[in-house]
Design a protein around this nucleic acid. Sequence first.
DNA 1: GATGAAATACTCCGTTT
DNA 2: AAACGGAGTATTTCATC
Lengths: 152, 152
Amino acid sequence: MIALDAFDKSILRALSHDGRMTHTALSETVNLSPNAVAERIKRLQRDGVIEGFGVRLSAKALGKTLLVFIEVKLDRTSADVFDAFSAAAAKTSEIEECHMVAGGFDYLIKTRHADMAAFRRFLSDTLLSLPGIRETHTYAVMEEVKASATTV
Amino acid sequence: MIALDAFDKSILRALSHDGRMTHTALSETVNLSPNAVAERIKRLQRDGVIEGFGVRLSAKALGKTLLVFIEVKLDRTSADVFDAFSAAAAKTSEIEECHMVAGGFDYLIKTRHADMAAFRRFLSDTLLSLPGIRETHTYAVMEEVKASATTV
DNA sequence: GATGAAATACTCCGTTT
DNA sequence: AAACGGAGTATTTCATC
């Protein structure tokens, strides 16, 4: 865990909102010289606080209107079933997130699809054809109340 | 749903990887003039495909080592219990995502915490003190197999 | 962390296909 | 409609304090 002062936090908050803000614009909001801002950003990247910069894409605008969470339980027959499933999940484009969880099931995956028909195809053709799956429970999202954002 | 040609897709893929790439650098990877790249980005923003630019922060580096999903079921006694819960979730900093789902429960929330002790405090002091909660199920993430990323 | 100068990148314009 | 090219402005980077 890295220590962040008020300047760092201001910079990160501003960049969360607009990752393409110039050093000059940032320097005005945090009251520092553009140079100091640039050096802090470089340091935050070196220290691993900033993993990178990205673009927020609209899933809806890209035609993915359906968000679905799926709980997956695996057959615990062989030791590398988990590795195989993890590897397959990482390669599957419809899977946006995949987490191995402790609790009543093994994996929780977050998937996006064009519509319910596309989801059903994904479920039968892609997910259920993976080896080692014992059962799945599907939860379709009706409303995204709060979207992802790591805060400072 | 907006139509994207190969240039748009290249630009979005490059920006997903590095949202701070300059128009000049982008122009070299997509084989277009910097000017054309700038105009396409502006258009993609106008059309809502690009919602904005951001920074990828390391939750671990920020001291949030524990990722927890929580299923929440509400008391359906009053009509605005859902609105109240949604509003509260949106304001709670530990809640990274909150989705209203169809299925066995009502909400699926994604939360991050410093450690298990911090999570227990969150659960008892923050979440369970919200009105209208009937029951919750907690799933601690042991391994993040695949992290979030909307692809093009 | 700040300042100033040089290199690079961006924006706006008109022009071309 | 979309892309290119050039001039003016802004930004980034590097040296120095």
